[in-house]
């Protein structure tokens, strides 16, 4: 899992060739509680690093999901529309949000790796 990186807003991003898969972290789904709805961007939309890309909702909260890097949306996980609970059950796997065509790979280097993110989360308590 060395190719997974994290943001301080609790998104994860995993490199798969020229594209990257993005979702929210285990910690983020625990904080949200039962996810009831995910609003995903349409395929083809250009997203900018740090800007709003999707919205994830529980009963009592709505959180923006920010793009970890800039790029173009090449796929969105349509399965989440019918089964938002996948975000809770498997945030790093079946609960992925979008696939991005990466604009600038160097942006990835600035994100946290697994160890750094773990420390970051511990620091939040």
């Amino acid at each position: 899992m060395s190719n997974v990186r994290y943001t301080e807003d609790h998104e994860w991003i995993r490199l798969e060739g020229d594209t990257a898969v993005v979702g929210i972290s285990q910690y983020a789904q625990e904080q949200l509680g039962d996810v009831v709805y995910v609003e995903l961007p349409e395929v083809g939309r250009k997203v900018e690093k740090g800007k709003e890309m999707a919205v994830v909702e529980s009963v009592k909260a709505a959180s923006e999901v920010y793009a970890p890097i800039s790029g173009e949306v090449v796929a969105a996980n349509a399965a989440l529309t019918a089964e938002p609970a996948k975000v809770n059950a498997d945030p790093m796997g079946d609960g992925w949000f979008v696939k991005l065509k990466i604009a600038n790979k160097a942006e990835l280097d600035k994100l946290m790796d697994e160890g750094a993110y773990k420390k970051f989360v511990e620091g939040l308590h």
């Binding site: 039962d34 009831v36 709805y37 529980s58 009963v59 609970a85």
Partner: peptide
Amino acid sequence: RRLDETAAAR
């Protein structure tokens, strides 16, 4: 009794 708000919203 308590109602399932998660199911209602999903």
